[in-house]
Design a protein around this nucleic acid. Structure first.
Lengths: 228, 228
DNA sequence: ACCTGAACACCGTTCAAGT
DNA sequence: ACCTGAACACCGTTCAAGT
């Protein structure tokens, strides 16, 4: 008896890159970084794994595109309508919340090279820093300080939330377990870590995040004062 | 004819975790992040792949341990003997150079959770920030700003160097290719990015890195002045 | 007790075959 | 021209078999 291979019929409408990117975002939101595989993706799109390669160069390209879509949407929602400082706070908080909602974006953003999504953030932050009117030689370092602070702290915060929910506990409980680990370290070797361990579980992430932004903005003011 | 399975003789001295971590560092230095596989590692250690699991929980544990070894060695070389500000500069530059020499450390450091290597850096930076004598409520944000700046910028710099050498060009040429890509963006949508593109290839990474550190330290001074 | 290495259940990516 | 899906060359991890 000959086995008859039954091949699924050809899909009627062709795939689009936007469709693929949107499905990727959904998979990443549901299952995190590991949730994005070509098998899961082709199943969700009801197509063959190979078909995706017609619209996307490889997995890294796909992850970058998904990340870029989130960043673009987020920044669109942050109109620059007030003072530069207040605009910077709005951008920072917008990204903070976006990374919290899509925890995989943080690590995608930090993956090597200065990709398109990074350039979007660079441009938005850079415009506002320039509007502050500081010396050109200081601009680059200032923008770098702000961007790294925003992305670094927001990514860490998102990872904390994700780790907590993965273990079925809330953020405070999760931070408490980290604090416990810190308190087990040798007190003489780790005095600073010991002393901040107690504060860790109860601190308000968004408030602390914003006060760090203000700290850097104060540094900018100090630099401006000095150059006069 | 019966095939006689020839099994390699049992290794005489047992494996140690330190040996495994050192071999991992060597693989990572040679071939980057992808260079670390259990097959390559067991070949280098002349053992079976499974044997490694007696000393290491999984691949992530192994990568963290390798990263931790580099960070620990680096910080040991940064004795805190002068003023807090100057100590912070020494620590920052030490990490900058270590990540440049081992480009895989940056991404390992940024991988989720606040691991041991991160705590080492937290402690060193925290001690010096505390010595600056700022208000306790500001400490956390200050330390976060410094740590994220140091790790973020150093990681980006290391990735640039690695990407350049991977493509057989030098750092300046590589940054030049990024600048070209930036100049292709719509000038009206990306005015800031356009205006800094020219400066990108020629800027001195270490000098810019240090001036960012000073910017944050200035913010600390400003905060201190305000609280008096 | 600890190592050995085949086996397992996955990956990303390719490409002949189909429509 | 574009999709389909088996095949390929890898992974990390496990575990029966060996010493």
């Amino acid at each position: 008896m000959v086995k008859k291979r039954i091949r699924n019929p050809r899909r009627e409408e062709s795939l689009s890159r936007a469709q693929i990117v949107q499905a990727s975002i959904e998979l990443l939101d549901i299952n995190g970084e590991d949730g994005l595989t070509f098998r899961a993706l082709s199943e969700r799109l009801v197509t063959g794994a190979g078909a995706i390669y017609g619209h996307v160069a490889n997995k890294n390209d796909l992850l970058t595109a998904a990340c870029d879509a989130i960043v673009a949407r987020t920044l669109e929602g942050c109109a620059a309508k007030k003072t530069p400082k207040s605009n910077l706070r709005v951008i920072a908080l917008g990204l903070f919340d976006a990374l919290d909602a899509h925890p995989w974006v943080g690590s995608a953003l930090m993956r090597a090279e200065i990709h398109r999504p990074m350039v979007r953030i660079l441009e938005r932050v850079g415009q506002q820093v320039r509007a502050l009117g500081i010396a050109r030689e200081q601009e680059w370092a200032t923008v770098a300080a702000l961007m790294n602070y925003i992305i670094g702290v927001a990514t860490q915060n998102a990872a904390n939330g994700q780790n907590a929910s993965k273990r079925g506990i809330d953020r405070e409980e999760f931070l408490g377990s980290i604090a416990d680990a810190w308190l087990q370290l040798d007190q003489r070797e780790y005095p600073f870590t010991h002393s901040v361990a107690e504060l860790l579980p109860s601190h308000d992430d968004r408030v602390d995040f914003l006060s760090g932004i203000d700290l850097i903005l104060n540094g900018i003011d100090a630099a401006k004062r000095r150059q006069r």
